[in-house]
């Protein structure tokens, strides 16, 4: 197949073209002993408690500064495993491709998925490809499943936050969401903005090793930090207070949000985590995180308090010293002029 070629319906038919595509793209790029067997299912040997997850990726644009849908679909799933304290091990990937999609683009996407897999020390062990007619999908959709093993004694859950926990973010907030917005049709602008899209397994491994008193880990993807904190407050039955002055942002993200009238707290992140850590251990966890590439800008943004009213709340301490509510974000992110 030549790189100017395009994906045809026949590539998903199960016939000769399908095989050619699987062999020349996925088999070649993602080659590993388990995948190379090309059996109906991968056979794996695993012990202990496992974490198992699935995530579908439908990002537009498909290529964005700092990554593409391939990298995103790998890191998204790996990070979901890592947030449970699991060591990510195996990935399966399902590709739904729109007829007419450029083969060269598919190769690039598969390549960055594989590069991210190497970075995250996981193997892609199973895959599937379907081709749908023009208009039935927007370019390419990728669904990935992930399996990871949970070390003994690790018990992380969104319901584990307790009053007194310090809340740490691993770095600047909103980078991915802003980078995507900057390339969205109709609102294009130029900025040195890159998605933060990165696998966090190694960072989490180091954190868990440093402290047995990490209660919650979450990656604030869709809905951003605002959604994540609300979810945790609800699941744990606690109030959360963060300090607005402490939240780290890149100036380009702030500029983007000022321009478009958006709140950076609701922008998606793809390479950041929020950790709830017992107060006594927050320093050691922070120190550990800062030694790591993906945690070098980690900082404490707030703490957990007792639930004070009829429902769990997330508050921000404003610059003025007053408190405002951070509510669960609703609907899609739209630029506003008003």
């Amino acid at each position: 197949m030549k790189s100017e070629d395009r994906i045809l319906l026949a590539h998903g038919s199960g016939g000769r073209l399908s095989r050619e595509l699987v062999e020349s793209v996925f088999g070649k790029i993602m080659s590993n002993p388990i995948l190379d067997r090309m059996d109906d299912a991968a056979t794996l040997k695993l012990e202990g408690r496992l974490a198992f997850t699935i995530d579908s990726h439908v990002v537009s644009p498909i290529f964005f500064p700092g990554g593409d849908i391939g990298r995103l679909s790998l890191t998204g799933t790996v990070n979901d495993l890592a947030m449970m304290g699991a060591i990510p091990l195996y990935i399966s990937a399902g590709f739904i491709i729109e007829e007419g999609f450029r083969l060269r683009d598919l190769e690039i996407i598969a390549g960055s998925l594989q590069a991210a897999a190497l970075e995250a020390a996981v193997q892609v062990v199973a895959g599937d490809t379907k081709v749908v007619g023009r208009g039935a999908a927007d370019g390419i959709f990728i669904t990935t499943c992930g399996l990871g093993s949970i070390p003994q004694g690790i018990m992380l859950s969104g319901s584990g936050a307790i009053p007194g926990d310090q809340i740490i973010v691993s770095g600047t907030i909103g980078d991915h969401g802003a980078a995507i917005l900057s390339h969205r049709e109709g609102i294009e602008f130029d900025a040195e903005l890159k998605s933060d899209c990165a696998p966090l397994g190694a960072l989490v491994g180091a954190m868990i090793e440093a402290s047995p008193n990490i209660h919650v880990l979450r990656d604030p993807t869709r809905g951003g930090v605002a959604a994540t904190l609300n979810e945790i407050a609800y699941a744990s039955g606690v109030d959360i207070e963060i300090n607005e002055e402490k939240i780290p942002y890149r100036s380009e993200v702030r500029g983007t949000c000022e321009l478009l009238g958006l709140d950076p707290l609701i922008l998606a992140n793809e390479g950041k985590l929020v950790a709830f850590v017992a107060g006594s251990d927050s320093e050691i966890v922070l120190e550990t995180m800062r030694k790591h590439t993906f945690g070098s800008e980690a900082t404490v943004i707030g703490m957990v308090q007792n639930q004070a009213s009829s429902r769990p709340r997330v508050y921000a301490r404003t610059l003025l010293g007053s408190r405002r509510i951070i509510s669960m974000p609703t609907g899609e992110q739209l630029p506003r002029i008003c």
Partner: peptide
């Protein structure tokens, strides 16, 4: 005003009310 928590910080003798200036 909402974003910066101004209403919550005001003395009791000042009340802010929202007017008709939202086009939507």
């Amino acid at each position: 005003i909402s974003r910066h928590g101004i209403r919550q910080a005001l003395p009791e003798s000042i009340q802010l009310i929202s007017g008709p200036g939202c086009p939507v």
